[in-house]
Design a protein around this nucleic acid. Structure first.
Length: 920
RNA sequence: GCUCAGGUGGUGGAAUAGGUAGACACGCAGGACUUAAAAUCCUGUGGGCAGUGAUGCCCGUACGGGUUCGAUUCCCGUCCCGAGCACCA
């Protein structure tokens, strides 16, 4: 009986679907385990072999955990809102819901062919109103909350209103956009609109004016993680800075917790490091400088991490967007400043970054007083100071900050060195080391001592205080697009009013086109009747990360119409034990999701503060491209080995018409009309193609489709080969050539259970040699799976099956546990054999075989004996023998006598079960 | 510039609380079976030197040092590739 994988795989996939084999329920009698994949955005191109890598790994782990007796939640869904479907809709007029639906169907079909053990009854789609109802609900909850810095959590805003009515801002310490101060009396006399504006300053989901990344080509704003080097990640269009009123989430309020709780997570160090950098904690002090424009005095606050360098402050610098610019520009300097600001505003983010070496700036005309030296120092404006970080103003210490140094050199400002013996003739001395000088009471201290001493002094003088600053900014939450969640907010006399929660979901309306309106309003402004009680509804929609921030919770209780997740389901499944996905979400989804979850935790809706306990980043699978070489100006192609003899052009060729780098010439001719009458210069009668490792993409003709692999080799082969390719977390190229080895292994495995045409196993007792093979494998595979080293366990299976073949093993006692071991990797063939072995139920209900150590213990060991580090001979000794006895045995061996030539060894080193080293 | 990860045969990769480097697989070469092909099986396969031969010796884990009886593994320096961040005061 041949290994007919096509038939076997189809049959078992149908069986799992029919018997709902992988549906799970909350079951307090069993321990739970939650394995989650990052759900995909269903693009029009379908899956290529790189996509399922992580899904295969998580599936192996899920199936393994089931065999180990866990109640495993392993769901899948679709991140279905997003730009590509909308861009396609703009071009074709096709509704994004339609294309999204088609793409999902294709994805689902492709995934089912690989035999994943998902509980499809729990599938979620972010674009489904029944799902996005809860995205909108969470937004309203955030709108209805503020972050209390004293209790370090989100609290209903009604609490804040009570405080204001009783004591005003007295004693309130809350995360806010702008520090406000008013009395209870004032609060009570404010109008409704004034109160609404004040509360907006505190809400966790709030609307506020801010500099945003505006992408004119996409017609929308983007979050920081959606922009790279001044271009949009989706589409690669230029992005510029623009001040706009936008919905935002006060993620910055959670900076400290997001940072501190990283310690509790089992994520890779590099991923944690990325999040740490993104959050960007820096410890320093805020200091107040007196500034004057000649007619009026102000207190200006700046942030610094180098309070110790205050005696070297020779000027101040403001960001061009700083509100101080207006106050401090004098009449004489007005024109120069306006010119500079206009120039700065015109630049895109990209240009600003490219201009790093060009020092630009302008003098405001105002002066500040250095609070320690009492010196009068000029206040400048420059692009190198960022409005969004710290206070948008800095004290410049040119001797010890390279940017200040360049600025001072360019504009001829004084530079005062503060470290003994430092050389600042060519560049600044930025290192935090050395002994202070020119610094009054700090003289003689090391920098390390001087920093806290300076801050202590400043605090004592009442001109500053310790402060921790974060780089993490609030998330811009509006997109001027159609295909996203609508905001459940309408505007009544200019006041943002939340919709009633019972009225959710607010469904996406139909529009006549998916483009912005003539006046530049988002597409939703086209919708007729987009209003509540005659008041207009918000027209922007939520960004992609909205729907993916809490999806893991919805899987726990996907059909609940009363709550995002019931308390019962949440307390059983709690959070994700193992999350597998790409590293590209390090500073986007994985930050937002943590923030979103912490918010829900604070408000008591979920029982765990962190959503993803353990996280593994699978590597990318790259493509292996093939090339042909056309002789310039002809239609003749020369084989790779001979290409240097001609003037050739390298052309990508479809990898599907190349096998083992040999071109299928007939297929090539019919591949494209241009090549129909191509001529070839062959080597050894064949056309050999060149190759390179590149990203897998259509334009390089190196895309390998998993469906094709399933057809030709089977899903089990695909699954095992993807694991065999190399370590899960590493990027590696796909090369279809190697797949034969895995396929051969599965056929060999099949033959272990079949003799001639029939299934055949014997009930004879297993021999010690056979038991040893099995139990070594149990130990190896188990420890490999636990450490996600799937590639080495595939090798271990190959070795074991080879050994059992050599032993002609046909014993049920060995073969039954063996098929259980293999089932997480190759579930279809395992089910088939399992049922042939006479089992009624799916192999997923079996128990993982117990490892028995006694079967694998060796009774003797072959020690290599080396003299002065050189290996000379081997000596076989029993295992249970003391080091002294080993030494005696070595000395007694005639070979030792030969090497020592009558002398005595200086020492003999015995490393248990490793090697014996004799030093002569 | 800063941070992180990595560099092992023709290829993908094994092996690190320091202990026989190259498991396993691909590819390649040769062989068996076959009318032939496919499939299957067997043998060889890091480099160099010596020998008719079994075999023996030397060199080898990016490069240069160090620690050690012994280093792919630990330490210092250099080079290269990848990823992330980047005027963050």
């Amino acid at each position: 009986m041949e290994y007919n994988f096509v038939d076997i795989e189809k049959r078992w996939q149908a069986y799992w679907a029919k018997h709902k084999t992988f549906e799970v329920k909350t079951d307090p009698s069993k321990p739970k385990y939650y394995v989650l994949d990052m759900f995909p955005y269903p693009s029009g191109a379908g899956l290529h072999v790189g996509h399922p890598l992580g899904y295969i790994a998580s599936d192996i782990y899920s199936r393994y955990k089931r065999l180990k007796g866990f109640n495993v939640l392993h769901p899948m869904g679709f991140d279905a809102f997003g730009l590509p479907a909308e861009q396609y809709a703009i071009q074709t007029g096709q509704h994004p819901a339609v294309t999204t639906e088609q793409n999902i169907a294709r994805y689902r079909d492709q995934m089912e062919r690989i035999g994943f053990s998902y509980d499809w009854s729990r599938e979620v789609r972010t674009c489904d109103p029944a799902y996005y109802k809860w995205t909108q609900w969470a937004f309203l909850e955030m709108f209805d909350s503020f972050y209390c810095n004293i209790c370090q959590k989100a609290v209903p805003i009604s609490e804040l209103v009570k405080r204001f009515a009783r004591n005003g801002t007295e004693g309130v310490n809350a995360a806010c956009t702008e520090e406000l101060e008013f009395t209870a009396e004032q609060w009570n006399s404010f109008s409704e609109k004034e109160k609404a504006e004040i509360l907006m300053n505190y809400r966790i989901a709030y609307q506020g004016e801010t500099a945003v990344n505006w992408c004119p080509m996409l017609g929308t704003v983007l979050a920081n993680d959606e922009v790279k080097e001044g271009f949009s990640i989706r589409g690669g269009y230029p992005v510029e800075q623009k001040k706009m009123k936008q919905w935002q989430l006060r993620v910055s309020a959670y900076a400290e917790r997001l940072l501190d709780n990283l310690e509790t997570l089992e994520w890779t160090d590099s991923l944690k490091e990325m999040q740490r950098n993104w959050i960007g904690r820096s410890q320093g002090a805020e200091m107040v400088f007196k500034v004057s424009n000649g007619s009026q005095m102000y207190d200006m606050t700046i942030f610094t991490t180098r309070a110790d360098t205050i005696f070297g402050v020779t000027f101040m610098v403001l960001a061009p967007e700083s509100e101080w610019v207006e106050k401090l520009t004098t009449e004489e300097q007005r024109e120069a400043v306006d010119e500079y600001l206009a120039m700065a505003a015109k630049k895109t983010e990209r240009e600003r970054m490219a201009d790093t070496h060009n020092v630009t700036g302008v003098f405001t005309g105002s002066y500040a007083i250095n609070p320690l030296t009492e010196e009068k120092i000029p206040v400048w404006i420059s692009e190198y100071v960022l409005a969004g970080y710290g206070t948008g103003a800095i004290m410049a210490v040119p001797a010890h900050d390279s940017r200040d140094y360049l600025f001072a050199k360019h504009f001829n400002l004084p530079i005062v060195p503060l470290i003994e013996g430092c050389d600042i003739s060519q560049e600044s001395f930025d290192a935090k080391e050395g002994t202070m000088c020119n610094s009054g009471f700090l003289n003689g201290m090391s920098v390390e001592e001087a920093i806290p001493a300076a801050i202590d002094y400043v605090e004592a003088q009442g001109i500053g205080q310790r402060k921790i600053n974060y780089r993490l900014r609030d998330a811009i939450f509006s997109r001027q697009r159609y295909w996203g969640e609508p905001f459940p907010i309408y505007f009544k006399d200019g006041i943002a009013v939340p919709m009633d929660i019972s009225a959710l979901p607010l469904e996406l309306p139909e529009v006549d086109a998916f483009l912005p309106t003539e006046s530049g309003e988002p597409p939703l402004a086209r919708a007729i009747g987009w209003e509540i009680d005659g008041y207009p509804i918000e027209t922007s929609t939520m960004p992609g990360f909205a729907g993916s921030s809490a999806y893991y919770l919805r899987y726990m209780d996907p059909n609940n119409s009363e709550a995002l997740v019931s308390r019962e389901a949440n307390e059983y499944w709690r959070n994700v034990d193992l999350y597998i996905g790409g590293t590209e979400h390090a500073t986007g989804h994985l930050i937002y999701s943590r923030f979103w979850n912490k918010f829900l935790f604070d408000r008591g809706y979920v029982c765990e503060e962190e959503p993803f306990k353990k996280l593994i980043n699978q590597g990318m699978i790259q493509g292996r491209s093939n090339f042909v070489y056309r002789i310039q100006g002809s239609n003749t192609f020369v084989s790779c080995g001979l290409k240097d003899q001609y003037d050739t052009m390298e052309i990508h060729v479809d990898v599907n018409i190349v096998e083992n780098d040999r071109l299928d010439i007939e297929a090539f001719k019919s591949w494209m009309p241009d090549y129909a009458d191509a001529e070839f210069i062959l080597e050894y009668g064949e056309y050999i193609c060149g190759w390179a490792i590149e990203k897998m993409s259509k334009s390089m003709f190196n895309v390998v489709n998993p469906d094709m692999i399933c057809e030709k080799y089977g899903a089990d082969t695909l699954r095992m080969y993807e694991m065999f390719l190399g370590p899960l977390e590493q990027s590696k190229p796909w090369d279809t050539r190697g797949i034969d080895g895995v396929h051969r292994f599965l056929r060999k495995f099949w033959r272990l259970y079949h003799e001639r045409d029939a299934f055949a196993v014997s009930d004879v007792k297993a021999t010690p040699a056979e038991l040893k093979v099995l139990h070594k494998l149990i130990a190896k595979v188990q420890s490999d799976i636990e450490s996600f080293s799937f590639n080495t366990s595939v090798s271990a299976f190959m070795i074991a099956v080879n050994e059992l073949s050599d032993l002609k093993c046909d014993k049920r006692e060995i073969l039954e546990p063996l098929v259980i071991l293999l089932s997480p990797f190759a579930p279809h063939i395992a089910e088939e054999i399992w049922s042939s072995l006479g089992h009624e139920k799916s192999i997923s209900t079996a128990s993982y075989p117990e490892y028995v150590e006694e079967y694998t213990i060796e009774d003797s060991f072959e020690y290599p004996v080396s003299f002065n580090g050189k290996l000379r001979f081997k000596i076989t000794l029993p295992l249970s023998i003391s080091p002294e006895e080993v030494k005696a045995a070595v000395l007694a061996d005639p070979m030792t006598e030969r090497y020592l030539q009558g002398g005595t060894p200086k020492k003999i080193i015995v490393v248990p079960s490793k090697i014996i080293n004799v030093v002569v």
